[in-house]
């Protein structure tokens, strides 16, 4: 007798224990239908020598030596007792036992949302935008020198809300804002942490195609750059007011 490898036979339920040897190299598994139940064959073990502890601990029905002709020899027996079924479809044990992510037993806990708060600024920043009224803006545009208008753009959200952008800003009543990462913050205020401007810009303006206008109470409006038009006298005069941009509170 000359066996080439050892073969294990397990019941279907015993096959659950195969997870413990899934990392053993070279093991292959096949399922054999046997009446109402099925059995599992495991091969790829060396013909002699002590097997790994995890293999020895498997709940096997039988352990055989396999020769080149497919005959199965019980341990310490010189006579084969059966033949390894030839129709078995062998799979590497890693494919036979596929990994699955476990279902979480308990839901994870989300961190509590951090409210955006504006605090008094530690330093004065140059104004970049002015929130004013349409009437004030139209009066200014009608009389302002053209060279001042050429440096401005504006967007209108209604009779009471006109955003004028550029420098120098017009000298008209309104709320001045300063610009940081496409975020417009009221003059004299800033985020609690300077990093928040970047995070807010990434969250609400990922493509950088808009301005985020913050109010002192932390609410914000998203104003696409496309809504800003060059400041000309005719553009200001012919504006009647509209409201199309997104508002987040």
């Amino acid at each position: 007798m000359s066996t080439t490898e050892r073969v294990l036979l397990l019941s279907e339920t015993g096959g659950l224990a195969l997870a413990a040897v899934r990392s053993q190299p070279g093991l292959r598994v096949a399922r054999e239908a046997a009446g109402a139940e099925s059995r599992l064959w495991v091969r790829g073990l060396p013909p002699t020598g002590q097997l790994a502890l995890a293999v020895r601990q498997l709940p096997t029905i039988s352990t055989f030596g396999l020769d080149a002709e497919g005959r199965l020899f019980p341990v310490a027996s010189l006579t084969p007792t059966t033949q390894l079924p030839s129709e078995l479809e062998w799979q590497p044990i890693q494919e036979f036992l596929r990994l699955e992510l476990p279902t979480a037993a308990l839901p994870g806990q989300l961190p509590a949302p951090h409210p955006l708060r504006l605090v008094p600024a530690s330093r004065a920043m140059e104004g970049a935008a002015l929130l004013t009224t349409l009437a004030a803006w139209q009066t200014y545009a009608s009389s302002a020198p053209e060279i001042r208008l050429q440096r401005l753009r504006f967007a209108v959200a209604g009779p009471e809300r006109v955003l004028v952008l550029g420098t120098p800003l017009p000298s008209v009543p309104g709320q001045e804002h300063w610009l940081h990462h496409n975020v417009l913050l009221p003059a004299g205020l800033e985020f609690e942490s300077p990093l928040l401007a970047l995070l807010v810009a990434q969250k609400y303006n990922p493509h950088g195609n808009a301005l985020l206008l913050f109010a002192a109470d932390g609410s914000l409006e998203r104003i696409p750059h496309a809504y800003l038009v060059p400041a000309t006298r005719s553009a200001a005069r012919l504006t009647t007011g509209s409201s199309e941009h997104d508002k987040h509170v």
């Binding site: 009608s142 009389s143 000309t232 006298r233 005719s234």
Partner: peptide, 14 residues
């Protein structure tokens, strides 16, 4: 000319 005047006046100051 009058139509052009109307358009151009929108661009004039005051």
């Amino acid at each position: 000319l009058q139509r052009y005047h109307t358009q151009d006046a929108q661009q004039q100051p005051y």
